[in-house]
């Protein structure tokens, strides 16, 4: 178990180190997220009060689109110099590779969420920084990163991976995004997470299903 954790940590540390050095994913994700928020703000042309009901939907659209950018780039890094072969040659369970990549992807998107939430809270005058919303965002991002890493691994070996990833991932993520929007709206309206427990349960189930499926299926996806 110690070696397993060490190998997962090595992949996460390596991904973060590459990102800190290049800032390729984080810069693109951050600029995209901020531009999307600003564009929504102008495009909808509504008063702040009229905008409020739309904020949960806008938040999740921004997080999902931004997260997808990071997912594509994360797998691309493993294709450079065929580094993915280096991972496959290592004496580790293939789930190590999935967990390492999925945790890295979740951390990238959570980093963006840390910036997006206060920006949206200020622009749309909505109390997005409350614990219930933060918990929902963490669970939603974890679930999306699990499904996204699985699909990005499938897409990485195809020629049209940039197109293949969103086309497969967005329909798959509908239950998660719909639940996340309902839970976020509910918390912003009532301040209570408990009332939306079934929808929150859907989010947790989504995360568990895709992280488990990813850990089990990654071997077939990587080795064909």
């Amino acid at each position: 178990m110690g070696l397993y954790i060490r190998q997962v940590s090595a992949i996460i540390r390596k991904d973060i180190l590459v990102e800190l050095r290049t800032r390729e994913s984080s810069t693109a994700m951050l600029v995209f997220a901020i531009m999307a928020i600003v564009l929504f703000n102008f495009a909808l042309r509504l008063s702040t009060d009229s905008l409020k009901p739309l904020v949960p939907g806008l938040l999740w659209i921004v997080l999902v689109f931004t997260g997808t950018l990071g997912l594509g780039h994360s797998m691309y890094n493993e294709q450079v110099n065929q580094c993915i072969e280096g991972l496959l040659l290592a004496p580790c369970d293939r789930s190590v590779i999935f967990l390492g990549k999925a945790i890295s992807n979740a951390l990238y998107t959570l980093f963006i969420a840390v910036i997006v939430l206060p920006v949206m809270a200020i622009l749309f005058d909505e109390s997005l920084l409350q614990p219930g919303v933060l918990v929902t965002v963490v669970v939603g991002v974890i679930g999306y990163s699990g499904a996204g890493t699985l699909i990005a691994t499938m897409a990485a070996s195809t020629r049209a991976r940039e197109i293949f990833l969103p086309i497969l991932l967005f329909p798959l993520a509908i239950p998660l995004v719909a639940s996340a929007v309902i839970v976020t709206s509910g918390i912003l309206d009532t301040q209570l997470l408990g009332e939306y427990a079934p929808w929150f349960g859907v989010m947790v189930a989504f995360a568990i299903i895709f992280w488990t499926a990813g850990s089990l299926l990654i071997e077939f996806l990587l080795e064909g």
């Binding site: 070696l3 060490r6 190998q7 940590s9 090595a10 992949i11 540390r13 390596k14 180190l17 590459v18 050095r21 290049t22 890094n77 450079v80 110099n81 065929q82 580094c83 072969e85 280096g86 991972l87 040659l89 290592a90 004496p91 580790c92």
Partner: peptide
């Protein structure tokens, strides 16, 4: 099979961890 954005030491440290 090495990461261009890492140094040689960082690459080998990564593989040392992967090989336990």
């Amino acid at each position: 099979l090495v990461y261009p954005d890492l140094t040689a030491v960082e690459n080998l440290r990564f593989y040392a961890d992967m090989y336990g």
